[in-house]
């Protein structure tokens, strides 16, 4: 009698245990967002020039009027209200994963329409672009130079052909040459003006033997 009771208890315990696991599996939701691109694939994408739209190209696309792309302004609503590119939609960075923001990107991918992101400068759009690419959106591009640069592109405001300052990774000068020049100037001026310093070290004389510590 005792034995039977114990088996019953064991089976009941096992059933409960299994039930808990099953319920756990059923209620387990898959994560809302998942990466569609591995980090190494992302690294390769960084080298791909097709991911950036140059300001000149953007200008042409805007003037030609063909609507095969969507423009997304990632700046805050205040900046957006003060001025933005033609037909741009405002999705601040923090809103990308919100319901509206995310469904916008999903829909654009379904319709295979290119989305061009821009921020104040290229850096501001780079993070969101990398983020969306890593989620697996292949139709997302980024505007080189960002809004501030594009804004100066208005005729007569900036000479962008001779001053491609939207290429932020171009060194502004030859760094090593600058350092060499300035250090050689430094040495010259130092030898010209600085007289040798008179340093008179006076040595302490020992007067008697130390008695020694401890």
């Amino acid at each position: 009698m005792k034995d039977i009771n114990r088996t019953h208890r064991l089976t009941r315990a096992i059933i409960v245990f299994i039930l808990i696991i099953v319920v756990g599996f059923i209620t387990l939701k898959p994560p809302k967002f998942e990466y569609g691109l591995s980090e190494n694939e992302m690294l390769k994408e960084l080298q791909n020039p097709d991911n950036t739209v140059l300001p000149e190209q953007m200008k042409q696309m805007l003037s030609s009027g063909g609507k095969q792309y969507l423009l997304v302004d990632l700046r805050n609503p205040y900046d957006f209200s003060r001025g933005h590119l033609e037909n741009a939609i405002n999705i601040p960075v923090s809103e990308i994963l919100s319901e509206d923001g995310f469904s916008f990107f999903e829909e654009s991918e379904k319709n295979s329409v290119n989305v061009i992101l821009y921020g104040k400068n290229q850096l501001e759009a780079n993070g969101p672009w990398m983020f969306l690419r890593q989620l697996g959106f292949n139709n997302v591009q980024v505007l080189a130079g960002g809004y501030d640069f594009f804004h100066q592109l208005e005729p007569g405001k900036a000479d962008y052909i001779h001053k491609p300052n939207y290429i932020v990774e171009e060194p502004v000068m030859n760094f090593s040459e600058f350092i060499d020049q300035s250090t050689s100037e430094n040495i010259k001026s130092v030898t010209e003006q600085v007289k040798p310093e008179n340093v008179i070290p006076i040595k302490r004389e020992k007067k008697s033997g130390t008695a020694g510590g401890c």
């Binding site: 600058f178 350092i179 020049q181 300035s182 250090t183 100037e185 430094n186 001026s189 130092v190 003006q193 600085v194 007289k195 310093e197 008179n198 340093v199 008179i200 070290p201 006076i202 040595k203 302490r204 004389e205 007067k207 008697s208 033997g209 130390t210 008695a211 020694g212 510590g213 401890c214």
Partner: peptide, 29 residues
């Protein structure tokens, strides 16, 4: 770098005399 070196090298002709204090008594340890 080489920014405005002239202004900074003017004061470089000081005589620096380092005098060390002498100990007068035997240290007892």
């Amino acid at each position: 770098g080489g920014a405005n070196i002239e202004t900074n090298t003017e004061n470089s002709t000081e005589n620096v005399i380092i005098k060390r204090r002498e100990k007068k008594s035997v240290t007892a340890g």
